[in-house]
């Protein structure tokens, strides 16, 4: 008893703390409230094994699930002007950025750009990070997407974007709004190069991100249950005083309303993307290819 409580537990805790384990080893499913062990959740790609709810997932986990053998290279975002407007609300924007980087990594931003092999061929994948200031789109995200488009074109590779965002980065005000045309230019370049641009809409994708690069895909895939829309639900309720229909702005609702081509379970995402890209680029079927090394 003593040995267990006085020695093993603290030691375990220290070990666990050192290895950046989640604060709680158990997590409650936001949908069915089932308690889920973090390792089971990880093994199941952050999908609840009780109700299939797709939990939000960090870009690194997303990318390692996606690329062949979980191997990929990340590309640093281009350097951009920090806090161009000297924005301050209740806090300075620079302080908010520092906090977000303390939580998410020294050079983190709301977008990760990666490249690697997908089904044996080069692919460029950009993933929004909702954990970084709500995935909000500012200059860095815009520049990141332009860079991703450039990488795709240079490598004659498809561009796949996983969207997740609360919308524009308000602290960059008008310059964040200008990322809507700027990211649209990125998409146009990929399309002009004859390369596939595929959007995977994940929970949540709203505001200026939905109303720009996330709705301009050659193909739109959504994860089950993802919230996808332009206006926030509270804004709609407050200004228009309408009651929201059940399932409003969820992936299934957007599918029924013609905004997405398919809803794909996270377990099937990699295979689906490989198949789509290969078909669009008239490549042989995957089973006809020599086995991946």
């Amino acid at each position: 008893m003593n040995w267990l409580t006085n020695f093993v537990r603290p030691k375990l805790r220290a070990l666990v703390a050192r290895k950046e384990a989640p604060e709680n080893l158990w997590l409650k499913c936001p949908n069915c409230e089932q308690m889920l062990f973090h390792r089971d959740l990880e093994a199941n790609q952050q999908v609840c094994n009780q109700c299939n709810h797709h939990l939000r997932i960090k870009p690194a986990a997303r990318l390692s699930q996606l690329f062949d053998d979980g191997k990929y290279e990340t590309h640093a975002l281009p350097r951009t002007v920090l806090d161009p407007l000297k924005f301050r609300d209740r806090k300075r924007y620079t302080d908010r950025l520092k906090e977000a980087q303390a939580e998410n990594g020294a050079n983190a931003e709301a977008l990760v750009v990666a490249s690697g092999k997908l089904g044996g061929y080069q692919a460029v994948v950009s993933v929004c990070d909702f954990a970084f200031m709500g995935g909000s789109m500012g200059i860095a995200v815009g520049e990141g997407l332009l860079m991703a488009a450039g990488l795709a074109i240079d490598n004659q590779a498809p561009l796949i974007v996983f969207s997740a965002s609360g919308g524009a980065r308000m602290q960059e005000a008008i310059l964040s709004l200008m990322q809507m045309p700027r990211t649209t230019i990125a998409v146009q370049r990929v399309k002009e190069a004859g390369l596939p641009y595929i959007v995977v809409l994940t929970d949540p994708t709203t505001g200026g991100v939905t109303a720009s690069f996330a709705m301009l895909g050659d193909i739109h895939i959504a994860e089950p249950g993802a919230l996808i829309g332009f206006s926030g639900q509270r804004v709609i309720q407050d200004t228009i005083r309408e009651t929201l229909p059940p399932g409003f702005q969820r992936a299934e609702y957007q599918f029924d309303h013609g905004m997405v081509d398919m809803i794909v379970h996270r377990h099937k995402m990699r295979d689906t993307l490989i198949r789509l890209v290969n078909l669009l680029l008239k490549r042989p079927a995957e089973e006809d290819l020599p086995a991946a090394a």
Partner: peptide, 8 residues
């Protein structure tokens, strides 16, 4: 599809 309409 307000978002799509604006993006387009």
């Amino acid at each position: 599809g307000q978002a799509e309409a604006i993006a387009r």
